[in-house]
Simulated assay, not measured.
Amino acid sequence: MRPQQRNLMYLLGREVSEDMSVGYTSPTSNSSAAYEYPFYPGLDISCDLENIPAFASTFLPVLYSLLFVTGLVGNALVIWVLTVFKKVRAMTDVYLLNLAISDLLFVFSLPFLVQYSIMSQWTFGNVMCKIISSAYFIGFYSSTFFITIMSVDRYLAIVRSVYALQIRTTAHGVISSLALWGVAILASAPELIFFQETNDNNQSKCTPHYPDSNNGWKTFSNFEVNILGWLMPVGVLIFCYHSILKSLQKCHTQNKYKAMKLVFIVVIVFFFFWTPVNIVIFLDSLRNLYVIDDCQTSRRLDLAMELAEALSFIHCCLNPVIYAFVGEKFKKHLCEAFRKYTRFLLICKDCGAFNGHSLDKHSSLHTASSQSSFVGTVL
């Protein structure tokens, strides 16, 4: 069986083994010849996979193009404000800057995905095949890691405030960020090693080629995504934000409920956008292990992979909104940036709420100031 035609990001780039896999093609391919007719040993039938619905051939490239533009603009704004106006002076700023860089690395793969989807072949060479696939996974892991450590940072600042005074420094933020980037790069090493450009019926493909014939590496990679990219972060998020909510209930400020609502949004958004793709990845692992071996389920699983993956891409565009633009201090610096470099002051119509007099007046009250700072760690 020839190597399967696959979307570069299909199931985060996982290759189905030759002896039992379900054939798959990019959702943008309209040629039924692109599909294989694999043999299912357990069912003793041939599985004639149907084309993924035609709407995907136009819907996904348009969606990925929109996500690229919004993700690029949103995360670039965060980096611009943090480096030029706000400056990176605290651990939270370090994590927010690295999260924006991670998301940018993630979205930079989208133009290549759009081109690969439209043309149904890889035209950038073997080196770019390895670079783009690795960048995608490094961005995926690092983004998840920085969302997780930002939750830990908020937990320390609110629940363990005394201990936080010793470790919530810029230097510690830089060191921990470098460590997380190192883990993300190591976790993405299989993609750098196994992804390569191949020629299939005079068409170039960028696909992973694992050294074994029993799906060992593919299954390992799937479980690696499930554990490092979902299970561990979800556990940390639940613990941290549950503790934060308990502490916020004791706080008496006007922003209390706004902060609590933001906590719920962070957790719900992460669950909504990352749980579906991780469920599909887990089911794909079961297919690799022959637990799932019927044709109809495999057809549905192939389509579910495409839709769940498209859903997960949206999260990188929402991170600037969730972690930066809703913050009052960040909005202040963003408005100052637009006020200085543009004449479109309508963008900053609510900047008056952030004048120095109101901040000084608010800080004159010790109790109110400490509680505002307490809530401000979340916001």
Rank of each mutant, 00 (worst) to 15 (best):
K86I: 07
Q115C: 11
W80A: 12
I193E: 12
M1N: 11
D212Y: 02
G13L: 01
I193Y: 12
L318V: 05
W122Q: 08
V69P: 02
I158D: 03
D360C: 08
F124D: 04
I167Q: 09
S188W: 00
Y116V: 13
S204V: 05
S142P: 02
Y257P: 09
A259H: 04
T144R: 13
L303A: 00
F145I: 02
L345E: 09
S31L: 14
N226E: 14
S247C: 07
Y37V: 13
L359W: 14
A135H: 11
L237S: 01
L186D: 00
L311W: 15
E197P: 06
P41R: 10
E36V: 03
L180E: 00
S29Y: 07
P41V: 12
S21M: 03
R168V: 05
F374E: 15
S373G: 13
L245P: 06
G173A: 02
V277W: 08
R14H: 11
E336D: 13
L237R: 01
K250E: 15
F223G: 06
L192I: 14
T92E: 15
L318C: 02
L82M: 13
P27F: 01
F140S: 06
S298D: 06
I101Y: 05
T207Y: 05
D212A: 05
R2E: 07
N355A: 01
V277F: 07
F220H: 13
S364G: 12
L228D: 11
S243N: 11
D93G: 05
S243H: 07
F338P: 00
P38V: 04
L77A: 02
A368L: 15
F344A: 09
G235A: 01
I185F: 12
T207E: 10
I314Y: 08
K258C: 12
P320H: 01
E309R: 15
I227L: 09
K261P: 06
V378W: 08
P190I: 00
C206K: 01
K261M: 15
D103V: 13
V277S: 09
I167Y: 05
D293C: 05
T58I: 09
W80H: 13
A33Q: 14
S213R: 08
F195A: 00
I281S: 08
S102C: 05
I281G: 05
S17R: 08
Y35A: 08
A310W: 09
S176Q: 06
Y136N: 09
K256I: 07
Y116P: 13
L365V: 11
E306N: 11
T198G: 06
Y40M: 12
H362Q: 14
L63H: 02
V16P: 15
G23T: 06
F140P: 09
M119W: 15
W80V: 09
F68Q: 00
Q166I: 08
L289K: 08
S177K: 00
L105C: 15
N7Y: 15
Y141L: 02
F108T: 14
W217A: 04
